[in-house]
Design a protein around this nucleic acid. Sequence first.
DNA 1: ATGCAATCGAGAAGATTTTCTCGATAAAGT
DNA 2: ACTTTATCGAGAAAATCTTCTCGATTGCAT
Lengths: 231, 231
Amino acid sequence: MKGPSPNPRLHEIPEASLRRLPIYYRFLQQMVLNGAFQVSCADLARGLGLDPTQVRKDIEMTGIVGKPRVGYLLTDLVRWLENFLGWNRPKGAVLVGAGSLGSALLGYERFRSHGMEIVAAFDIDPEKIGQRVHGREVQPLMFLPDFVRRTHTLLGVIATPAAAAQPVADLMMSGGIRAIWNFAPAHIQAPPTVILQNEDLYHSLASLSFKLENRLGVAPAGNGIRYAEDN
Amino acid sequence: MKGPSPNPRLHEIPEASLRRLPIYYRFLQQMVLNGAFQVSCADLARGLGLDPTQVRKDIEMTGIVGKPRVGYLLTDLVRWLENFLGWNRPKGAVLVGAGSLGSALLGYERFRSHGMEIVAAFDIDPEKIGQRVHGREVQPLMFLPDFVRRTHTLLGVIATPAAAAQPVADLMMSGGIRAIWNFAPAHIQAPPTVILQNEDLYHSLASLSFKLENRLGVAPAGNGIRYAEDN
DNA sequence: ATGCAATCGAGAAGATTTTCTCGATAAAGT
DNA sequence: ACTTTATCGAGAAAATCTTCTCGATTGCAT
């Protein structure tokens, strides 16, 4: 492995591939713990029950080059993925909504090693303001735009009730937030310059509920193993 | 609208469409509150910033038939979707892991009106066993298989640390669980007869982190508005 | 009544994603 | 050294999903 340059034709990485990389990443870390030294796409595919070609395409997409008959050096690949995904460059984030979900998110230590660090929490509820949640003091929502501006924070996490989602998003954007991770069950409008990702549990529940009633355990065609419908 | 029969060629509903239906559903409910009476796919598309044809295809997929020049009767469509997704037939679920995420999930009142009711919570931690969380007493994990068998529960929710995910899944399946909603950041192996859905935050974080670093706010081609990258 | 405009429904075309196939390469065995 | 085998890389084919296009139908305005 040479440069730490996650270069390739950036725009052309399928969302689907992007979302599979963490699966590989986790499996690779496990292999490291098990003392392995190198790894092939076939190993990954076997271990995870996925199609080998798909794994190869995904890995290939990140621009790393492997050696025939061998695969990749394990530690190289792990570091390559970390770098490709930006997980070795934590980005600060603000969170709004210190309810049960928000608190749970504030407790996720491992976000930091996955590219995100929640540096401040905000709420509009006077009861919650001033409380400390997992080491961060909950601040009044109105301080948010200024905080974001001062700290050049780019990432915002919304963990409010549905009704608050849009106003909160607007407030975030007014301060300069460029990417929003929305856990509220609401549809947010934002200009296309802002990256918006919805983590709406009801979407998943729809799929799950439907499949359960219609017994669509199924597997994606062909092979044998596979399994998860990832997110 | 006639029969409450969510019939159509079941297998052939794209996952992507399925996951958009809740978005429509929510928007429709809002319209009901606003006193609207009927709705067209174009209305939905406009209101949500989506492609009108896509909305039409999605709705069509559920088998409801509309009237040209009018669209659909609002209440009919809402009920049709509820029925199609199975949201008017709550299915019992067991949850394992009464940590902060598990507790948050136990507090989601609205799951019940979206097809799922968490009827029992389990944990392996003696500290947690016996505690009441949002009205349910946390039971010892070992009681799970029997509970599942007795109550014919089909749905299991995993909110444990990663390491516990696979053993818990196995325990669930041993009791007869047919669908697993996995919130642990771990890859679960299960036979294809079991419906498995991963809600792995790190997958989303990968996508989000990558896009933020590469400024891919972008919009899916064409039109103007649009916005969310839905889950 | 008649024409016009909005909408559904459905097929066709286009884009995207997954899977298949094969040549090139490097390691291991003979 | 030579053959065999596992693997990567990449192009082709297939499947899936999205977008375009158009005819049919219905309500509204004239």
